[in-house]
Amino acid sequence: MNQLIHKQENKTELAAQDQLRQYLTFRAGNENLAISILDVKEIIEINTITDVPMTPEYIRGVINLRGNVVPVIDLSARLGRQSSEITKRSCIVLVQVEYNEDAQLLGMLVDAVDEILEIPEANIMPPPDFGADIRTDFIQSMGRVGDEFIILLNINRVLSIKELSQLKQVAEYEGGNTNKETSFTALN
C-alpha cells in the first residue's frame, strides 16, 4: 500500500520538480538517519519498557501507549549495530507499518531525534548498490544535505512485521544456548 502511495507521489513530483519533501532526522548507533515525515505518527519520551523474554536483541520490549500495548524495536540493533543505551536524549518514534492489510503500530527506539529537514527532490539519489554497511534493501534513497549524505530508511522493510516475527525464533536460538538448536532447525 505505502509503496503504491509513494509511487503516485513520485509521479506528481516529477511534474513539480522543485517540490520539497520533509524528513525527520535522528541518530541511531552513531549514524544520521531519516524517514519521511509522513511515516511518523508520534514521538514520545521513554518511560518504562517492559522486556519481552525469548525475543532477539532488536525487540526491545513493549510499552503502554495510552492503554495499548505497543512493541518497541531497537533501531540500532535492527541495523546490525550495538543495542542502544538509554540516555536522556533517547526517544521512541512511533510509526505505522502495514502487514496483511492490517496496520500495526510500532515504536522505534533511537538515540536522539534531531530535526525536520526539507530536502528538494533533486537532491535525492538512489541508494548505492553496495558498500553501505546497512542492508541495501533497508535504504530507500540517499538525501544530500549541504555536503553530507543522509540515509533515508525504507521503514516498511526495516520494520517488516513478517521478517521481524520470523527471525525471532531463529535469532533466539542463535543468541541463546548455542549447543542444542541445530537439530531443532534441522527438524524445521
Partner: peptide, 14 residues
Amino acid sequence: IKPLGKLFENLDGI
C-alpha cells in the same frame, strides 16, 4: 488482556 500483536504471534510461552 491486551493483545501483543502480530509481531509476537510466533512467540511461545507469552
